[in-house]
């Protein structure tokens, strides 16, 4: 049984869907060209993942093994369509920009993966937490990549924030590098691959650096025991 702390750590860091499991790369790479796009799709995924995890955990005793996959797909598709309609109604312009990637959340393997591997075997509370944390982990990876690409590609951050947050956010657009013509590669598709690779490398590098002092101090601690 996973404890809550494990669930949080797994979702956000050690088993992050975007950076470790490498699931849902299609939307991750396609819409990470700006912070606002990344945040929009990240939030939609987070919502679907949490809702589907709760629903699937709640029905886990009712659904027979033979039909569990079609039922999971049904549940996920229903939630995605609901979110899609809601975004079309309330975040219309962002919806037009994200386009096909909203309905494509259905095919995000991270969602059915969590349904099968976690939600169908754990309590509703744990499943909800897992869905939320996995969604948050995915969203953070998406936003980090989006920020990196937007900064390098256009010299701004949070451009068009009003599409997501309404008129309040019209002035949130930060021009970090004024009169910057943009490093084109960053917003083009290769920039997504290179950016993701750099993020994964940075995460692995940081983990290794943190692990190193621990292993070095190991013999020192072990020595007195041996003696």
């Amino acid at each position: 049984m996973s404890t809550s702390t494990d669930i949080v750590r797994n979702g956000l860091w050690s088993n992050n869907p975007g950076l470790v499991q490498l699931l849902g790369l299609c939307p991750l790479l396609a819409v990470s060209n700006s912070v606002v796009n990344a945040l929009g799709l990240g939030l939609a995924t987070l919502l679907v993942l949490t809702a589907s995890n709760i629903a699937i955990s709640a029905i886990r005793h009712v659904v027979r093994d033979e039909i569990r996959i079609p039922v999971f797909v049904l549940v996920i598709a229903a939630f995605v369509t609901t979110v899609e309609l809601a975004m079309n109604a309330w975040l219309h312009e962002l919806y037009t920009i994200l386009g096909i990637f909203i309905p494509l959340i259905v095919t995000n393997c991270a969602i059915i993966g969590r349904a099968e591997a976690f939600a169908s075997r754990n309590t509703v509370v744990h499943a909800a937490l897992d869905g939320f944390m996995m969604g948050a982990g995915f969203m953070l990876a998406l936003v980090a990549l989006g920020a990196m690409r937007e900064l390098l590609g256009a010299g701004t951050l949070l451009a068009d924030a009003d599409l997501l947050f309404g008129p309040v956010a019209t002035h949130w657009n930060l021009t970090i590098i004024p009169d910057f013509r943009g490093f084109l590669l960053a917003i083009l598709p290769p920039g997504a691959f290179i950016g993701l690779a750099l993020l994964i490398a940075a995460k692995n590098g940081w983990e290794r650096r943190r692990a190193r002092p621990a292993t070095r101090s190991q013999p020192a601690v072990a020595a007195p025991d041996a003696a």
Partner: peptide, 11 residues
């Protein structure tokens, strides 16, 4: 029947 039920709920 179960599958149909879920289809109806989703629908």
């Amino acid at each position: 029947g179960l599958l149909a039920l879920f289809a109806v709920v989703g629908g």
